[in-house]
């Protein structure tokens, strides 16, 4: 009897944690998103669906912008992160952990601080742009800061390890002999990569994509620090509504709209990549 109960008992702290810090707050937020009123008179449950229509009507531009930025940052992270993960897994030999550490080292510094340091790096007269302008390679009115590329690059930079590590993990445990098998079966290096290595590493790309896309889409630090009025992301709106305007129902409604859009995005993404199939292979 006790033996049967043991796994459940062991899982209990986890369940309690989830219930306390996930299910209860989510339920509270759902309830909050359907209330009316203001901070002074208090919020009353009125099942006010209007909060959702208002959220969609007023902030769809920021929502789509966030999705676009998140997607762009994810694609850039794949473009930079995949080759890095590949190189460390296949070519770094016994120095793998050194390179992984180097990759992670900047991330021991606080997220906000890192982003602010990017602000200095990218500022109009900073070490990069200032130098290029001084030697005449860039026009003097050229700016990166406060533009969409600054925000997207900041996002890609800040979440790069979340892309590299899952891809690295898959490539690292891959049986490298399958690459030899591909060569043995007349595949060129490119074909061996496209037909064997890449498909086998797709679960890593999928996981990395999720772990980059979700937080980048919901991020507000990069847009606030590196962006301008034209690059406001949905995260900033939620933050402003909640902490500045104290309009909790709207903030909660926007949060759920974002959550719904992300979930739809994730499921269609899984469909497109055929990840159920890929996952099954990994599970064996």
């Amino acid at each position: 009897m006790r033996r049967k109960l043991t796994p459940y008992l062991l899982a209990l702290p986890g369940w309690a944690w989830l219930a306390l810090f996930f299910i209860v707050p989510i339920a509270g937020m759902v309830s909050l998103s359907l209330t009316s009123g203001n901070i002074i008179t208090g919020f009353h449950q009125t099942f006010n669906i209007g909060n959702y229509t208002e959220a969609l009507n007023l902030y769809s531009e920021q929502l789509f912008r966030s999705l676009f930025y998140g997607l762009s940052a994810t694609l850039i992270a794949i473009a930079i992160g995949y080759p890095a993960a590949y190189w460390i897994a296949f070519k770094a030999g016994k120095h793998k952990s050194t390179y992984l550490l180097l990759l992670l080292l900047p991330f021991f510094v606080s997220f906000v601080l890192r982003t602010i340091s990017w602000k200095f790096t990218l500022s109009d007269q900073g070490i990069v742009l200032g130098t290029l302008k001084n030697i005449g390679l860039l026009p003097t009115d050229f700016a990166v800061l406060n533009t969409a590329p600054a925000v997207v690059l900041g996002l890609a930079y800040n979440f790069l390890p979340f892309m590299v590590l899952p891809i690295y993990a898959v490539l690292e445990r891959m049986d490298h002999r399958v690459v030899e098998a591909a060569h043995d079966l007349y595949a060129s290096r490119l074909q061996a990569f496209l037909r064997v290595v890449l498909p086998i590493s797709l679960p890593g790309v999928f996981a990395g994509g999720l772990m980059t896309f979700i937080p980048t889409t919901a991020d507000y630090v990069n847009a606030t620090v590196l962006g301008g009025p034209e690059t406001t992301m949905i995260g900033s709106i939620i933050q402003t509504q909640y902490l500045v305007n104290n309009d909790y129902p709207i903030a909660a409604a926007i949060t759920f709209v974002l959550m719904a859009v992300l979930l739809i995005g994730i499921f269609s993404y899984a469909r497109a990549l055929g990840t159920e199939r890929v996952m099954e292979v990994q599970a064996k």
């Binding site: 002999r177 399958v178 030899e180 098998a181 043995d184 086998i200 797709l202 890929v278 292979v281």
Partner: peptide, 12 residues
């Protein structure tokens, strides 16, 4: 062509 020790079949 080669038959590998661990077979090295393409899992996908």
């Amino acid at each position: 062509n080669m038959v590998f020790q661990s077979y090295a079949l393409f899992p996908h």
